[in-house]
Nucleic acid binder design. Structure first.
Lengths: 359, 359
DNA sequence: CCACCGTGCGGAAACGTTTACATGCTAGCG
DNA sequence: CGCTAGCATGTAAACGTTTCCGCACGGTGG
């Protein structure tokens, strides 16, 4: 690559200025240098089919010497495939997405594919715009926690292979975490600790996983005889958790399940500030087990979802759909589970609470 | 191969199968529909220069109706520009990089540019490979915490605009955090608490910021009369912190400064497990203030770097260099500062320590 | 010995744009 | 009234590939 790094008018017998960002040496140069036609050079770089071993060797040698790399752009123009994939998610900053992004990146890298990333800021309009931009430059798109309406997803999928992560739409591949086992266990756990009322701090409007969590909690609460209040929507952030914490303590809520760990941490943080002891006065359950969530004190009881596994599943599905567009839609499900740590504890009577508050 | 997989004969008056992932309608269709030449259509989509307002209107109407979007690939082929930028960083999973990625993504999005992302896994070879792949599809590349040798960076920069974040190489634009103020304050802080020996848990080999931190600590320790030991290299992970914690307690180290918050949390986590009280037995200082690091108990004293700002700076520099390749290299510096929370405290005599250990 | 076929390769036509250059037209100026 | 300047538009040549054909050649089967 560092053939002639700073040189002003580098290779090329014609002295034409090269403004492409690639090496500047084209398939024609290689053909000339190795005494074959460009068609043969092309074949040498695409499986080497129907090429004499010695020719292949000669061409590769010439290419190596000239520092030739096939232009992905030109290749893309004629083949219609770009060897890139796109990932669009609601917030790059949310640690929940990091493992899935990592998994996808890793899968792509192993096939020498580029990865586009887009941050929709939880805005469906932005999400669609980004996805459409990607559609022209990627062979497949992974929508993580998509906020798009079902129809929009299907419309997009008609133009370009689409796979969903953390979301389900009929007829579209998806990789999801089944929150039900974990949340059911969480409700049972809280009930077992004597809590009679639980508040669910809901996630962003239009979030599929929020709806799933809400449903799972309702069902579990009904089965257990627990009273469930659903608050929200809330943005899935630390700040949102802090903001809602005051109301939790004002209403003397004894147990709360949060849309995700960020919100849970926000609640925890604000409670600490307010001098509200956790879990004595308030039991907090998070979701996702993003970040190494065990590191906080008190360590957060949370519904852990194997998000890295979900990412790997999503990547597999995407790659599969890209190579075989005419498959039936497939759904991969990984199970969540409850991780009990120390942010949950026995229910307390209001009287006991007061005693705790002023030692 | 898969010339006409699902759709028999979709759109198009010619019935030609469209295998491109774009809308399938080309500039030619728009030209025909609006009764002008393709050159005029092209002009309408590039600033509308030298085009009669009514023509422009007509063309845009036709384009809208047909659902035409210019092929970025074809455009890229002839112009040599792709309107994409690339970001390569050592670990997508490390929360330190999230804000800078977000900043870059945001800047790119506002110019309707795509963002490639690559994860080098802290491996210089992989980093180079990824960067080279990007070079052919992006107009500029941001190397975050690059582990590449200076020469490799310069060689790359000769092929494609390159900007560095969290790293400095002569002749290359860079946006960095100046760790010196924060670390100097940290040393002073520890000295003020009576600590006489500090261990620095160094970061990954070949990390520029690790070298800077090490230097800054050495200078500050020398000036303060503190004894500084440098341990390492360590991978910048939670696990690495946990692993080294045992040695810290075995050697009865009283104060430790960590390469980043992940390592610091690892140390903290393991200490809690071992029953070593923080900060009574061990004062811990982190770096970066990544994650909302105040949420852990005890809250981590850390050297906060405004990484989002660094990201914005880097994005600005990259965009500027892409439009004006022949500028002098520029360096943007943001200052770190010490954030004192509760993971640091007064030095303890071994005797006192024992008393603490068994209550 | 002839017809045939597979094999290795070259020629040339795409792919969908941008852009230099040519062209016709209108208007302004002498 | 004629000449020219400028403006809107068209023509065509790139950009760097892949890939469909066709061609020569040599070996094999009849």
């Amino acid at each position: 690559m560092d053939l002639e790094p700073p040189a002003p008018a580098p290779a090329g017998r014609s002295g034409r200025t090269t403004r492409t960002s690639t090496s500047g040496v084209t398939i024609r140069d290689v053909a000339a240098a190795s005494g074959v036609s460009i068609a043969t050079v092309s074949r040498c770089f695409n499986g080497g089919d129907r090429v004499l071993p010695q020719t292949l060797e000669r061409v590769h040698a010439a290419a190596r010497e000239l520092g030739y790399t096939p232009s992905r752009t030109a290749r893309g123009l004629v083949t219609g495939r770009t060897a890139n994939i796109g990932v669009v998610l609601p917030d790059v900053t949310n640690p929940f997405f990091a493992p899935v992004l990592a998994a996808v990146e890793s899968a792509a890298e192993s096939q020498d594919r580029g990865v586009f990333i887009g941050d929709s800021r939880e805005d469906p309009t932005a999400e669609l715009r980004i996805a459409q931009r990607m559609a022209s430059q990627a062979d497949g798109i992974l929508l993580v926690s998509s906020r798009l309406p079902d129809d929009a997803v299907r419309a997009l999928a008609a133009r370009v292979p689409v796979v969903l992560a953390n979301r389900v739409v009929d007829g579209i591949d998806s990789a999801v975490i089944d929150v039900e086992p974990g949340l059911t266990a969480a409700v049972a756990h809280l009930a077992g600790l004597g809590h009679e009322r639980v508040v669910y701090l809901g996630g962003p409007a239009g979030s599929w996983s929020d709806a799933r969590k809400s449903d799972a909690l309702s069902a579990a609460a009904r089965a257990t005889g627990l009273h469930l209040d659903v608050w929200g929507p809330h943005r899935p952030t630390f700040a949102a958790g802090r903001a809602v914490a005051d109301r939790l303590v004002a209403e003397e809520v004894g147990a709360v399940v949060c849309y995700d760990d960020l919100v849970a941490f926000g609640v925890l943080s604000r409670c600490t500030e307010l001098g509200v002891p956790v879990p004595e006065a308030l039991s907090i359950v998070g979701c996702d087990d993003a970040l190494d969530t065990g590191m906080a004190r008190p360590a957060l009881t949370t519904v852990a979802g194997p998000s890295a596994q979900m990412g790997r599943d999503a990547a597999e599905l995407l790659l599969a759909r890209m190579t075989t567009p005419t498959r039936d839609a497939e759904r991969r499900v990984v199970r969540s589970r409850l991780v009990v740590r120390s942010s949950t504890g026995p229910a307390t009577e209001p009287g006991d609470l007061d005693r705790l508050a002023l030692p």
